[in-house]
Amino acid sequence: MPITTKAKSPGELEDWPAIREAIRRYVRTRTGRADMADDIAQDVLLRLIALRETQAIGSIFALAFRIADNLMVDTNRREIRQSGDLDEDWPCDAPSLDRVLDSRRAVEVLSSCLRRMPPLRREVIIRRRLRQESCRAIGNDLSMSSKAVEKHITRGLVDLRQAFERAGIEPVGE
């Protein structure tokens, strides 16, 4: 995870309220839950403040969202362990995007969209996400520039998101 590169100069202050709000928004969009968003934002903020004391942070938001990713996974695990309702698609009132994405229907929609893509684009995405190859390695193998590889991935992701939105019901924006 690309995080530690160049720090802000020590005198520079972070806009913590804005950072907290961004984390809340990030978690709420993914989980559909305001309560979880508040808890996680608070937790992430404390960790960021502590980390900033000892580390140079390149992108405060990249780090914040990554910590939030991990906390969301932890919280979900804990809640599933406590309630045991694994079968429920959406146990809470609002649909959680993360849960929806793992459903069988979502896999079908994404897979059919992938199969309709130009073969080269599909191949690029499979190599990048599934096999974790770098853009440069993929470019070398398929005789194209890294920029072209990135373009395929970007375009593919937008297509997948739209296929997913088209297929069902998903909040767009808030």
Partner: peptide
């Protein structure tokens, strides 16, 4: 933030991984 959250949710999901596996084999 919202768009990034949705895109990241897709990228990180197991569903996406399964779909890539499936599409690669079909």
């Amino acid at each position: 933030v919202e768009s990034y959250a949705r895109m990241q949710a897709l990228w990180q999901s197991d569903g996406f991984e399964d779909a890539l596996q499936e599409a690669g084999d079909s």
